[in-house]
Design a protein around this nucleic acid. Structure first.
Length: 584
RNA sequence: GCGCCCGUAGCUCAAGUGGAUAGAGCAUCGGCCUUCUAAGCCGAAGGUUGCAGGUUCGAACCCUGCCGGGCGCGCCA
């Protein structure tokens, strides 16, 4: 519809130029049509006349009037007015307004979906939490946001691939293996002091026992053998930990060490996947950093940067000239000990994604990684990749509140709240809705009490209740031995003449545009915001107007309207990963 | 110190990405009410969009400088 209005305007402009009402030498602007913010301004508004006023050397309002005179007639438009500083406002004909309701019921779950993405392959990476411990509430927001965004892009017609990048290589994984091994020794009765910087969580103890159950005492060594000759921990806890890891590898041998490491990774990744599944999130692929390294792609990526002339050696390391491409400083690709950096792996990963055929890459990262964006951008740029192909969405952490008190959150002290705990407390639906209710870059306060409350104050509850309430109306209808007999296309929607109904009709008609706009700007919160508006409009309607009335034609018109509302609520909530319950 | 993000009603946040009179929900105040679903419904009040300049027909949005908050500034991942 928006496009239809825009094309009418474009035709008007062309006609004006043809008639000599516009200078032939000026460039015609791209016609912008938007939804009128105020219903008193009709349904759609165009600012074309104001944009054109200056180059055309005419007054905006006069220009608008001239355009109005040249507009082709359209069945969908019942009125055109010039208002304010020079807006051209369009009012939809009733039939066009009703079409949205009929389309919602005809298309069902597909209503709101479009093909603007044209099947364009798009890769979206999110969560990607290190496999060294359970997901916490910081990951939760990235998970909810990333998944909603992926669904949104799908709804807009993109071929979406969801991926989780697993950092299963490098030092932290060795520390994980050592941590688990030490807990395993404890479980087997060998007491080795647990290092300060090891992973101290209970989950390590649990999985260590599982390893003992599975493999028996195969990896047991005496406490003295484990610690003999290691540097003092007090002097340098990190160096001690590395020495301990080296010792584990030496004592166990490569195969057994690898077994312990893989067991630890598998167990923790299993926990993570389980939690994500309970959170309603699944990935098309878990991409292993280790496989990336084994495939030689990291070396290849470094090589390509070198061939492109963007590397140099200094202080024993290989550097990438990031500063030439907008970063603050140059970055190390290969350390003086010969190992490649995390950054090098990430360059390789991004290249690999592009080679898989994804034209657009979306990365959902925690906002604490923002300093990392310029160097990745720089690397892609150095390899000739257009900057627009990578979109990094930064997600701020949420601060939890309970009873008006801020919950302490410190990863170092190990007192982080896990996603599991959050879900146990407020439920999947509330958690997911709250997480995506705000713009991702916005710092956000997460009120646990509100999320839990079963009241209209709770936005999730409010939206879900609207859906359940409509279901309930139809149950009531059946109990009275009635059914909505009119097919959507036959319902007498012209009988809907209250302001409440006008608002609902308007909102339903806007849904496809909301999806398209939210996908284009990659902002799922627009959908959440819209759903609150829709639910509010429905509840107000419900309170003001009875549905189950004697006048059959009017009754069925109203039932058709709320059935369409129900469909849109279900579709929108579905995009956000929130259930639309039949009853509450 | 440098860089990025943020600053909107008492509180939590929107504002279709430069449009018309900056909107919701809590909380506050004033009425009503006990209904297809019940935890209510209707209305009012609440603002120099951190401050000061600038850009233009038009700025919460773009530019500059301050103020305040968050994060980042490893040959860690």
């Amino acid at each position: 519809m928006k496009r239809h209005v825009a094309s009418l305007l474009a035709q008007a402009l062309a006609a004006m130029r043809e008639a000599g009402e516009l200078p032939a030498d000026i460039e015609l602007p791209e016609v912008q049509v938007e939804r009128a913010r105020d219903r008193a301004h009709g349904d759609y508004a165009a600012n074309t006349a104001m944009v054109l006023a200056k180059p055309a050397g005419q007054k905006p309002r006069e220009l608008a009037e001239a355009m109005r005179a040249r507009l082709p007639a359209s069945e969908a438009i019942s009125g055109v007015e010039v208002a304010g500083p020079g807006f051209i406002n369009f009012t939809l004909a009733a039939a066009a307004r009703h079409e949205a309701v009929r389309a919602a019921l005809r298309e069902g779950p597909a209503f709101g979906r479009s093909d603007v993405g044209a099947g364009h392959p798009i890769h979206i990476e999110y969560v990607s939490a290190n496999p060294t411990g359970p997901l916490h509430v910081g990951h939760g927001r990235g998970a909810a946001f990333g998944d909603a965004l992926a669904s949104l892009l799908e709804a807009a017609g993109y071929a979406v691939h969801r991926e989780y990048y697993v950092n299963d290589a490098g030092r932290q994984v060795d520390i994980l293996a050592v941590s688990l091994w030490l807990r395993y020794l404890e479980a087997a009765g060998v007491a080795v002091p647990f290092p300060e910087k090891g992973y101290r969580g209970d989950y390590i103890v649990t999985h260590a026992r599982e390893l003992l159950d599975a493999d028996g005492h195969a990896y047991v060594h005496g406490a003295d053998t484990v610690t003999a000759g290691l540097p003092a921990e007090e002097a340098d806890p990190e160096a001690y930990l590395d020495a301990l890891a080296a010792r584990a590898r030496a004592l166990l041998g490569e195969a057994a060490y690898r077994r312990v490491l893989d067991f630890a990774l598998g167990a923790i990744l299993g926990d993570i996947r389980e939690e994500l599944a309970a959170f309603g999130i699944g990935f098309d692929r878990y991409f292993s950093e280790r496989e990336l390294a084994d495939s030689g792609r990291i070396e290849a990526a470094v090589q390509r940067l070198t061939e492109a002339g963007y590397t140099y050696e200094a202080e024993g390391a290989l550097w990438f000239r990031a500063a030439e491409l907008g970063d603050d400083k140059d970055r190390v690709l290969r350390r003086d000990n010969g190992l490649t950096t995390y950054f090098a792996a990430d360059v390789a990963y991004h290249l690999e994604k592009l080679e898989r055929g994804f034209h657009t890459l979306v990365n959902v990262w925690g906002a604490d990684h923002h300093g990392y964006v310029p160097r990745v951008r720089a690397a892609l740029q150095a390899l000739g990749v257009e900057a627009e192909r990578l979109d990094v969405r930064l997600v701020q952490f949420a601060v939890l509140y309970r009873g008006g008190e801020k919950l302490p959150m410190s990863t170092r002290a190990g007192e982080f709240v896990t996603l599991r705990e959050l879900r146990d407390e407020v439920g999947k639906d509330a958690a997911r809705f709250f997480y995506v209710m705000r713009r991702s870059e916005q710092h956000m306060d997460f009120d646990l009490d509100l999320a839990k409350s079963e009241s209209a104050d709770n936005p999730v509850y409010y939206c879900q209740y609207a859906h359940a309430r409509i279901c309930s109306v139809f149950r009531q209808l059946a109990e009275r031995g009635l059914a909505c007999q009119a097919a959507p296309d036959e319902a007498a929607l012209e009988r809907l003449d209250t302001e409440h109904e006008a608002v609902l009709l308007d909102l339903i008609g806007r849904y496809p545009e909301v999806i398209e706009a939210a996908a284009a700007s990659r902002e799922p919160h627009q959908v959440a915001q819209y759903l609150r508006e829709l639910a509010a409009a429905f509840h107000t309607y419900y309170n003001a107007v009875p549905f189950i009335i004697d006048d059959q034609a009017l009754r069925e018109a109203r039932l058709t309207l709320i059935r369409a509302t129900q469909q849109v609520l279900a579709n929108g909530l579905g995009l956000l990963g929130v259930d639309a319950p039949q009853s509450m």
